[in-house]
Amino acid sequence: MNQHPTGVDTVHRLRRVVWPAAAYEVTPVGDAWVATTATEFALEDFHLVRDQFPGRHVTLDGDVITVWPPTSLTRQLLAT
Rank of each mutant, 00 (worst) to 15 (best):
M1I: 06
M1H: 04
N2V: 11
N2H: 13
Q3W: 08
H4L: 14
P5N: 10
P5D: 08
T6R: 11
T6Y: 08
G7T: 02
V8I: 13
V8R: 14
V8Q: 10
D9N: 13
D9G: 04
T10R: 00
T10P: 00
H12V: 15
R13H: 06
R13L: 04
L14E: 05
L14V: 02
V17M: 07
V18F: 10
V18C: 09
V18M: 11
W19L: 07
P20M: 08
P20D: 03
A22E: 12
A23Q: 07
A23C: 07
A23W: 01
Y24R: 03
Y24A: 03
E25P: 01
E25F: 08
V26D: 01
T27E: 14
P28V: 07
V29Q: 11
G30M: 03
D31S: 05
D31V: 00
A32N: 12
A32D: 10
W33G: 02
W33C: 03
W33M: 07
V34N: 03
V34L: 08
V34F: 09
V34P: 06
A35D: 04
A35F: 01
A35K: 05
T37F: 04
T37W: 04
A38K: 14
E40H: 12
E40K: 15
E40G: 11
E40W: 10
E40R: 14
F41K: 05
F41N: 06
A42Q: 14
A42V: 02
A42N: 10
A42D: 15
A42E: 13
E44A: 15
H47Y: 10
H47L: 06
L48Q: 15
L48C: 11
V49L: 10
R50M: 02
R50K: 05
D51L: 05
Q52E: 05
Q52L: 02
Q52P: 03
F53W: 03
F53V: 03
P54K: 06
P54F: 06
P54M: 08
G55K: 04
R56M: 08
R56Q: 08
H57A: 12
H57P: 06
V58W: 04
V58H: 08
T59C: 12
T59L: 13
L60M: 14
L60Q: 13
L60G: 10
G62T: 08
G62S: 08
G62L: 09
D63W: 12
D63S: 15
D63L: 09
V64R: 15
V64Y: 09
I65E: 10
I65V: 13
I65W: 07
I65Y: 10
I65D: 11
T66Q: 00
T66E: 04
T66Y: 00
V67C: 07
V67G: 09
V67R: 05
W68F: 13
W68L: 13
W68C: 09
P69V: 01
P69T: 05
P70L: 01
T71N: 07
T71K: 05
S72N: 07
S72I: 00
S72W: 04
L73S: 08
T74P: 02
R75L: 02
R75Q: 00
L77Q: 14
L77C: 10
L77G: 10
L77Y: 13
A79Y: 04
A79W: 03
A79H: 06
T80V: 09
